[in-house]
Structure formats: C-alpha cells, structure tokens
Design a protein around this nucleic acid. Structure first.
Length: 434
RNA sequence: GUGGGCGUAGCGUAGAGGCUUAACGCGCCAGGUUGUGGCCCUGGAGAUCGCGGGUUCGAAUCCCGCCGCUCACCCCA
C-alpha cells in the first residue's frame, strides 16, 4: 500500500480546525499591519536559493529538493521563504511602489531532512517581508506583528531572542578576529568546528557540542564589534520592541542559518528546552537584493512554521473554534421519494444552508445515526406518505418528537433558524473575528 | 549524515516459545424497533502479528538482515 512520503503528513478533517485557525489569524494579523498577500511559485530556479541563502548553508548544501526538468532547467522546490519574495519584488519593479513594500505569503517549504517532532520535509509557513527601507522601526514592526500574532493564537511562555550580526562594514573585520581567536585553539576543536572555521565562522558561536563550548564562551562577541551604524540600528530596534512592551532577550550568540542576514536577527522559542523548537525567526537582509542581481535594497522579514504552532497549541491545550458542519440532513425513504428530497436539498443550499444528503439504501435508523454523528440540527424525512401529501417529517435533533408539516413550512423553519445561527453564532464560527 | 526506541484489524492496546481458532476497548456494519438518533443489549465484518531468512517438533513471541515509523544530534519553521 502507498503511504504519504516520509516527512509529509495528511491533515485530516479531525485536525483541520487547528490549521485553519492559525491560517486565518495569520492573514488577519498580516493585514492588520498593512501587509498584502503575495503568492510565488512552489518551485524556482535552483540558483535563486544558492545565491540567496548561500552556497555553504546546510539548506543549500544538502537539503534542497532539486531536479532537472524536461527542458533541462535546474529547478528547486521552495527551500526558503525570503529569496522568492525578493525575486518577485525585483522582477515586478516594486521599487516603483511607495517604499517599503510590505508582503506576506502562506507557503509550503521543502527540505530533505530527517523528520522528527516539529520537523517535516514539507512544512508550511507564514512569511512576512518588508522591502525597501532600513528604518529600525520596521524591524520592530515585524517583531511586534509576529509577537501579537502568537498572543492572539493563545500561546503562552514564549521567549523572543534577538541579536545583531552586523553588516558588510563591520562583519568581515570581526570574522577575521574570530578566526584568529579560533586558530589559537585549533587543537581543541572537533572536526565540525574546524570546517566551520573556514566555511562559515559565525556558526561556531551557537555550536552546542559540549567539548567546544568553553572555547565558544570565551570567543570575542560580535555585538562588541559592530560598527557605529549597526550598533545604533540595533539599539533603536531594542528600543522600539521595548516600547511595545514585548519581553525581549538579547542573545549575542544567536546566529541564523542563511547567509543573507545583516544586522537584526531574531527567533521566538517556546518554554520547553532542547530539540529544534523555534516557532519563528527572521531578520534583516540588506544585501540580498543586490546578491540576486538587483540594486541595493534593504529588507527585513520573518517566517513562522504552521505545523510547529499547531503542535504548541495542542501541547498548551489551547482550544480552537470548531469548523462549522452541516445544519440539515435530508433523507428519502421508499420508491418515488428521491426527486422531492433532492429538490428540497437544492432549495436549502440555494438559501445558503449547509445540507447533507442521506444517500444509499440504509435503514431509517442507520440514517438517523449518521445524522446524529454529523451533529446536524435538523433531519428532514421524505417518506412515501409525506411525499404523497406534499409534506415532510421534520425532526429537531435537540427535541424528542418529530413533527409533520408542509415542505414550505419546513423550509421556513430551517431558514429562520439558520439566520439566527448566523447572527448569534458569528463569534463562535467566524475565523475572521479576533 | 550520526545515534536511540518502536512495528499485532481503521485507531488505542493485551498476548513474550505450546493453554490463541491471535484477545480487549473505540470505530465500522447489521439487528433488538415494518419508517426514527443519542443510552443499552446482541451479532457481524475487519489482522497472511511490517517483510524476508534462520533456530525449533512448534515462532506474533528467540536470532539475523531489510523496510517503515518515531525521538534526539546537526540544521531550521
């Protein structure tokens, strides 16, 4: 038998409410901050990710779903959220729009990794990007958007980690300093660290192998070697976030896995420690547009993982609104009763009443059980007796006794009830309400 | 890529060399009620015990290999 490919998952109807809850809140909060929805393709030219995220990153080096298509194009399934958005910004000349351009996407991301709790080969993200402005206020805005979004989901005990990793002015000198420091300890380093030292020294800082920890602890901190402009920028980001009353943890060892980041980087972690658990993360990428062949255009953004949010909502016991089910179950019973039942169901749906049609040749009892399982409010029975008289039997599932009345009267009753539900129930069922 | 754990009906579990014709709960189907749900009762369908090999008179049970799932490292969401 076939199975869903390793690292992918089916979201079943019993679970879908969590996902629609997160997605609708995502849309709501993105638009609340003035971000407009953008959809980019599921696959891009491989070079976009190589140039964007960086050749030496783990994602590009060993985790991409890459293939050559029938036209000999090198294609990669979306490995990361930011580069495609910046590509779209450049391609469509969005620099002619008022800056910054604020965009959000709900995307799927593909990485060939070994799956584990909270890690999939296909996962989904809310991705928000603001391109065309380097004001630290914008960094703060994105952090606030992310944080308020989490609050609205009902998540508790989160921790916002923040850092600045400098830019092209100050980082090269710092990296040289770091390399010099590490070369002095080369003998004590594990093989992995030696490799990083050459390829991606910044990553040495957040490395977790215990034997290398003491060396990392004493390494020169990047935060002490920022140029004046970067230091100033960082201070203003911290100020803006502080003003928002968001508890922030400056973490001088926070480093992210993509090469395009400059200055601000941040992640949000749940309380529980260990494992890979970041719910969301992002930062500023002032050099990315140039890297992709455009002119210098600053930008800042984040991605946050839908599946990880769902996981944490469940862990924290957050209740999500139930998806609305059908209101009415229409059954026919006996010969010649089908058309009348069909037309009644058609009528209900034309009036916007979600209606389930009883099909097959099961007993009355079985049908009622189905209706009960579907948690409908009303069951409408078209039996031979009723159809002959132009009537139906209407059962209010909350009441004990059914009653027989004309089809018109039954329709009116259900419509009236449905209207009441729509008005009263808008807080319960509407995903759009905060 | 590295290391641990686990594979028995759709789901959750029991059985750990012969007492098993593989059991129980949920779910599914049907009946108890000629055309009326929930609760209850009765019955039924559904499992070559992940796959292959080995040990044994005898393997779901012991051994080996493979596959799958899962957790952690790494990395990221």
């Amino acid at each position: 038998m076939y199975q869903a490919p390793r690292g992918t998952q089916d979201v079943l109807p019993t679970d879908i409410a969590y996902h629609t809850f997160v997605e609708s809140k995502a849309r709501r909060f993105a638009s609340l901050y003035g971000y407009q929805e953008l959809r980019t393709p599921t696959f891009e030219e491989t070079g976009l990710f190589q140039r964007g995220a960086g050749e030496s990153t783990d994602v590009v080096e060993k985790e991409m779903y890459s293939f050559r298509d029938k036209g000999d194009n090198d294609i990669t399934l979306r490995a990361e959220g930011t580069a495609p958005v910046v590509r779209a910004y450049l391609q469509h000349g969005m620099h002619t729009l008022p800056q910054p351009v604020r965009l959000f996407s709900l995307i799927s991301v593909f990485r060939y990794d070994r799956p584990q709790a909270g890690r999939l080969r296909e996962h989904h993200q809310l991705d928000c990007e603001a391109i065309g402005e380097d004001d630290p206020l914008l960094d703060g805005e994105l952090i606030a958007l992310l944080w308020r979004f989490y609050e609205a989901l009902g998540l508790r005990d989160l921790s916002l980690q923040i850092n600045s990793i400098g830019d092209a002015n100050c980082r090269p000198a710092y990296l040289e300093l770091l390399r010099t420091y590490y070369r002095g300890h080369q003998a004590e380093l594990c093989g992995d660290c030696r490799r990083r030292l050459e390829v991606n020294p910044l990553r040495l800082l957040d490395f977790k192998v215990p034997t290398c920890q003491p060396i990392a602890q004493k390494a020169p901190s990047l935060i002490d070697h920022l140029c004046d402009e970067c230091a100033e920028h960082y201070q203003r980001v911290l100020a803006v976030v502080g003003e928002e009353k968001i508890p922030v943890v400056p973490n001088p060892r926070l480093v992210r896995g993509f090469d395009y980041y400059t200055r601000t980087v941040f992640e949000v972690w749940p309380q529980r420690t260990g494992e890979q658990s970041a719910l969301g993360g992002g930062g500023r990428y002032d050099g990315l547009a140039e890297q992709l062949g455009g002119k210098h255009t600053p930008g800042v953004g984040f991605g946050t993982g839908i599946e990880r949010l769902v996981l944490n909502l469940k862990e924290q016991g957050v209740e999500v609104p139930a998806s609305p089910g059908p209101q009415v179950y229409v059954v026919h019973l006996g010969t010649g009763t089908e058309p009348a039942a069909n037309s009644f169901a058609r009528e209900l749906r034309a009036h916007g009443v979600p209606t389930l049609r009883g099909v097959g040749t099961r007993s009355m009892r079985a049908r009622l059980r189905h209706a009960d399982a579907a948690r409908v409010r009303w069951v409408v029975v078209f039996g031979e007796d009723e159809v002959k008289d132009g009537k139906v039997t209407l059962r209010d599932m909350a009441a004990t006794e059914p009653e027989t009345l004309s089809t018109e009267a039954a329709l009116e009753r259900i419509k009236r009830d449905e209207q009441m539900q729509t008005h009263l129930g808008s807080g319960t069922f509407s995903m759009e309400s905060s």
